[in-house]
Design a protein around this nucleic acid. Structure first.
Lengths: 240, 240
DNA sequence: GCGGATTTGTACGTATGTATT
DNA sequence: TAATACATACGTACAAATCCG
């Protein structure tokens, strides 16, 4: 592991363990230099990561203050996958693979997904059951060229885990749009809805690898009362 | 202006002008070192900023590729204020100040807003009219201690501009939650709603200064059909 | 209010590692 | 293999904000 990653994780753990609480100041950069026997540059990389992730606020001339983060959030931001969320928060949750097939991208699908026309893609539809209610319906399109094999088992577990751990592809960034749209027939067929519902939350995202190649388009539809988006944002992005 | 900011803006402008299109590679770091007569460290800060803002993707061993960003998005993320959005996208838009008063934070309000009990705050309610329809209703709470004066005129223009330009306070980060909730009576009283609407999008945010002091709590309620959240996110936050 | 100590921010330079072509 | 380009790491110097006596 890289030096700044080791330092990042060490400090993050000490925050998560409560060794430093909200409002406390971390040791100074120079103290960490001595502790880890690295250059200040390396310490600063770790601290800047902690800052962009919302753990601390660096204050010029004072030090690095630990922030209080509201717990038990649903961070759809930052590309966290459903499976990771489920594990992190221990939801009583089941994924059901409704369908799995390969199709060719049409002109309409090309506009929607961002994939080139005539590309071969996997199309997988899944529902997510939380507390014994089906409240999320995902439709994924994944590039066959990059993900040659896809099974129902992978779909029931975690596609992201498969892509990163098995295929060793590096998922890097995503564009995402969130809207509220009318229910459609597929929602009614596959989800457990409330009688007064006429809308659903739609999250469309295009996901890219480190080489800027798009490998996924997803629409994730959430029953409105089960949807919560939490975001931590900096105004002048993460100073560097 | 700082050296890396100058370089950032120069490169950003050349991208926005179309000098480099999607898929093109920027000059290498070393070429920028020569061009701007700075160290490579400084060039890298500028390029990393471009990367976190979604303008480019740096690819190890290859270079910095310009990404295609979908245009005309509504980036509520990144703390952009309503007024800035309006100016950027030229919406035909009017802000109406419904009420403006100072109140003392009660125990309930303390839990909601994150402010300490008994703090004095401004409470300002505003509606936003887009294309001649009132579709957004904002309720802001602002700390009197930090923002001593607030007028209807400032509320009609831009509170953020006032805070940053006039008071010279540095807005730094925010936590934000987005939900879909039932309409309430105030929504019905102050907004132009569609007959079939029974829900509204609620965005709650707590906003902090560079010294980690919270100065604002806002709930922004959007008519569902006028709500669009656009987000650009990196998986391993902005490498540094 | 001032000066000095501490702490973070910016900038420069150098060396080496790793991915791509 | 060699050249190029980005990534990591170390070190130094000075600027700017904060704190305290």
């Amino acid at each position: 592991m890289k030096a700044y990653e080791v330092i990042y994780q060490t400090i993050e753990n000490s925050i998560l363990k409560g060794e430093y609480g909200p409002g406390d100041f971390l040791p100074s950069e120079n103290q960490y230099v001595k502790q880890f026997k690295v250059s200040r540059d390396t310490v600063r990389k770790a601290l800047n990561l902690l800052m962009t992730n919302g753990h601390i606020q660096k204050i010029h001339g004072k030090g690095s203050m630990v922030l209080k983060r509201e717990q038990l959030r649903f961070p759809i931001s930052g590309l966290t996958s459903y499976k990771e969320l489920q594990q992190a928060y221990g939801y009583d949750s089941i994924t059901d693979v409704v369908s799995l097939e390969t199709i060719k991208i049409s002109e309409d699908l090309s506009r929607l997904t961002g994939f080139e026309k005539d590309e071969d893609v996997w199309k997988i539809i899944r529902t997510r059951e939380i507390d014994h209610q089906k409240v999320i319906r995902d439709t994924d399109y994944l590039l066959c060229r990059l993900i040659p094999n896809l099974t129902r088992e992978i779909g029931e577990d975690s596609i992201y885990k498969y892509i990163e751990k098995e295929l060793n592809l590096q998922i890097s960034f995503a564009e995402k749009e969130i809207r509220v749209v009318p229910l459609n027939q597929l929602d009614k067929d596959h989800l457990d809805l409330n009688s007064q519902d006429n809308n659903i939350v739609s999250i469309q995202s295009r996901v890219f690898l480190a080489n800027a190649e798009q490998f996924q388009y997803t629409e994730s539809r959430h029953r409105v009362d089960k949807f919560l988006f939490y975001d931590f944002a900096r105004r002048n992005p993460s100073t560097i």
